[in-house]
Structure formats: C-alpha cells, structure tokens
Computed example of a mutant assay.
Amino acid sequence: MPRVRRCRYPNCHAMVTMPHWYCAKHIKYEAEYLAKRERYRMHSSHTQREVHQYNTVTRNRNETKQTQYEFYRTKQWVELRKAVLERDHYLCQYCLVNHRVTPAKTVDHIVPIEYDSKLKANVDNLAVICNQCHHAKTKWEQLTYGTGQDNKIKNVNEIFDLRKIVENME
C-alpha cells in the first residue's frame, strides 16, 4: 500500500500519494513549495557550516587557543568552577562592587588565561560574573591586555582588584 499524506493547501483534506505534497486540484503550488523548501534547506545548511567553521577554525585557530579551550573540558575546571560558584554564592562579584545583587552562573578569570596561563587554575583569579558584566569585561580585556582575535598581547601590569576593573570597564 503506497504511503499517503494530506494535501498542503490550506483547508484541503484530500490525500496525496508520496512523494507529492499537493493534490491534483492544487498541484500548481507544488513547484513553488519545493523551491521554497530547497532555499530553506540551503540556508539552514549554510548556517550549520558557519557554526562548524567557528568551532573548528576560529576557536581552535592555534595551539595556544586549543589548549585554553581544552582546559574548560577538564575535571579540574568543573571542580574549580563549582567551588567558586559556591564561594561567591552564585552572585556577580562585579555587580556587587556597585552594590547591585545579580545572580550569575558564569565563572570568569579576573586576569585572562590568554594573558597569563599560569593563573588558569588559581582560585584567587576566578570570580562569578553575569552576562552583562562579562561582555563589558571582555571588551575591556581586549583594550587593556590585547586579548581576543587578531589582537596582540600587551605588556601591562595584571590587575586583580575587582574595584579597579569595574571602574575601568565603565
């Protein structure tokens, strides 16, 4: 018995033999529907390629970056992250400097590991941060330390004081 489905035309209840999408009465819409479906499929696969390219090319553009991202997949990082979240009570430490209480689940390196990789597992170099502060701090790090894509690392003193960082972020 051939497989069937309902005609795609609105309010048409006729059954159509697969692989067709429209009944004999509405068959004129099938070519347009198939073209639209193909355009969507091509757009969707293009988007998937961009995501794949980011993950394999941009994120892992060199051995240093690859090593940094591999650290975030270790048991050591999972335990460090959990300890810092509990220590800071799941509150953004950067917002607390400005007397705002903001819940957060992201743990951030105060001094970026791209700038000083020796501090990546140091609990004193970690703080809980909300998304808004994280975006602002990332921009500040790019200007101050020269971190990020296509930037050159600068020779500056490391800043560990959250108050100074928050002042400079604003």
Rank of each mutant, 00 (worst) to 15 (best):
R6N: 05
R8Q: 13
N11E: 15
H13K: 09
H13F: 12
H13P: 04
A14L: 06
A14S: 13
M15Q: 04
H20A: 07
H20S: 03
Y22Q: 03
A24R: 12
K25T: 14
K25P: 04
K28M: 03
K28Q: 06
Y29G: 01
E30Q: 12
A31H: 09
E32N: 08
E32Y: 05
A35N: 06
R37T: 07
E38N: 07
E38Y: 06
R39M: 09
R41A: 15
M42C: 06
H43Y: 09
H46M: 11
H46L: 08
T47A: 00
T47D: 00
R49I: 05
R49Q: 09
E50T: 02
V51I: 06
Y54W: 00
V57M: 02
N60G: 00
R61P: 01
E63M: 00
K65I: 00
Q66V: 02
Q66F: 00
Q68P: 03
F71I: 04
Y72R: 04
Y72I: 01
T74L: 00
T74M: 01
K75I: 01
K75G: 00
W77I: 04
R81S: 02
K82I: 03
V84E: 02
D88E: 13
H89P: 04
L96Q: 15
V97K: 15
R100Q: 14
R100P: 03
T102S: 13
P103A: 06
K105S: 10
H109F: 13
P112C: 11
I113G: 07
Y115N: 07
S117L: 08
L119D: 08
K120H: 13
K120W: 14
K120F: 08
N122K: 11
D124K: 15
I129K: 11
C130L: 14
C130N: 10
N131Q: 13
N131I: 14
H134Q: 15
H134S: 15
A136Q: 15
K137T: 09
W140L: 10
W140D: 07
W140Y: 12
E141T: 11
Q142E: 15
L143D: 11
Y145Q: 09
G148E: 04
G148Q: 05
K152Q: 01
I153R: 01
I159S: 09
F160H: 15
R163W: 05
N168A: 12
M169A: 11
M169S: 13
